[in-house]
């Protein structure tokens, strides 16, 4: 008897559904992934109050009030751009660590955004931020109160 020979069929695994799942996962990851990059700067804020006798002869001070930044010997009102320029002219990198200190005196009602921008500007100019603790001053504490600080790269 002559049997009809079945054509040889190569066995295969159906990968179509697997690819569907893979692409679903891919779409999920593409849509949910946010490549976050953390930006900011580090500040060293050692604890302890400042000794008034240790005051520097020429201490740079940035006074921040809402919408007003004062800087320099005459405590002039400056814009953020001018502050950046003035800080870069100080050339902190050429100075020793004690001369890099910039006192940041921020009023109680200063918004964080303004405060942050000033801190970042000082840090970028390689200055060392010294924070003035308003509560300590109000409480009749040491003059200048505050916490020594340092911005580092």
């Amino acid at each position: 008897m002559k049997f009809k020979k079945k054509p040889f069929k190569e066995p295969e695994i159906n990968l179509a559904s697997l690819v569907d799942i893979a692409f679903l996962l891919l779409v999920f990851f593409i849509l949910t992934t946010t490549f976050t990059k953390t930006s900011g700067n580090k500040l060293k804020i050692p604890s302890g109050s400042t000794d008034a006798s240790k005051k520097q002869e020429k201490q740079l001070t940035v006074s921040v009030k809402p919408g007003e930044i004062r800087f320099g010997e005459k405590s002039e009102v400056v814009s953020m751009e001018v502050l950046r320029e003035m800080l870069s002219k100080e050339n902190f990198l050429a100075k020793d660590s004690s001369q890099r200190i910039v006192i940041l005196d921020a009023g109680k009602d200063v918004p964080y955004e303004e405060y942050f921008q000033v801190v970042m500007a000082i840090a970028k100019a390689n200055g060392v931020v010294a924070l003035v603790d308003q509560q300590e001053i109000e409480g009749g504490g040491s003059s200048g109160g505050g916490e020594g600080g340092g911005a580092q790269k």
Binding site: I45, A106, G107, K108, D109, V110, P111, Y112, E113, Y115, F116, L131, D133, Q134, Q135, E147
Partner: peptide, 14 residues
């Protein structure tokens, strides 16, 4: 938060 004022975030830093 950028809208907070120094009296709110200052004590946290301290």
């Amino acid at each position: 938060d950028k809208g907070l004022v120094q009296s709110q975030f200052g004590p946290v830093m301290v």
